[in-house]
Amino acid sequence: MTVPFYVAPEQVMKDRAEYAQKGIARGRSLVATIYRDGVLIVADNPSRSLHKISEIYDRIAFAGVGKYNEYDQLRVAGVRHADTKGYAFSREDVDARSLANLYAQHLGNVFTHEMKPLEVEILVAELAAVPGNDQLYHIAYEGTITDEERFAVLGGEAEPIAERMEQAWRSDWSLGEALRAAVAALAGPDRTLGPSHLEVAFLSRENGRRAFRRLTEAELVTLLEEQPTDGRQDGAGQDAASGGAEAAPGSSGTGSASSSGASGRGTAR
């Protein structure tokens, strides 16, 4: 009779976390940020057909990094969940929070019970009816769910990108401003990301019932070349901005906690 070797649960979790992190770090990163009219998601993705960002429902978008087949399966499950829920109840009953919770439970379950953890990090974004209530849920490979207030960075190089976003971030910025900042943050100081290496989509209150739309390459070129406008025109949003800033340190705290956790994870929760 063979006796299995004893492996400490701590070691098991650590190994799995390391395995998942390595898988995620092999892929390219992604940034999502709230802007004036909704949520902008920018991914470093040279492929035209294998999307990292997609539509889930009228006001909900999905983005994933890591292993394509794994997050794509989660994306399809999300579409299925949202469509059946909207069909059984009503379109307005479909919300991002419950979907994000389901994803978190699934990822957590796989992480603790299966041989191999999922090598993905995903984002669920929901557009609110009014500015200021847009939601970003960042779910890590082991099921940790973070509610981001301003922006979310997914992927292996999350920390330096998040720092660059932190410096550039302004409340109430326009689509073009947010896009240029996100692209610069993704690219870093040493390289430039052209439109052919970007996948960009946004949820906007201007888009009607289905708020999700992809930016075409031509639109991207125009927006990236646009001259940066003076930020002082956003005086109207200052009140909301200071209100957001009250909450911001806490949120950036949790944000950096999750990204630092991703780089050097000792505990699995």
Partner: peptide, 23 residues
């Protein structure tokens, strides 16, 4: 409502009616 995940052999594909039957 659970997260509708299927094995590749049972996947309803893009057919919403098949999905309704499965769920």
């Amino acid at each position: 409502m659970p997260l509708p995940l299927f094995s590749p052999a049972e996947d309803p594909g893009p057919d919403f009616k098949a999905l309704l039957r499965r769920t």
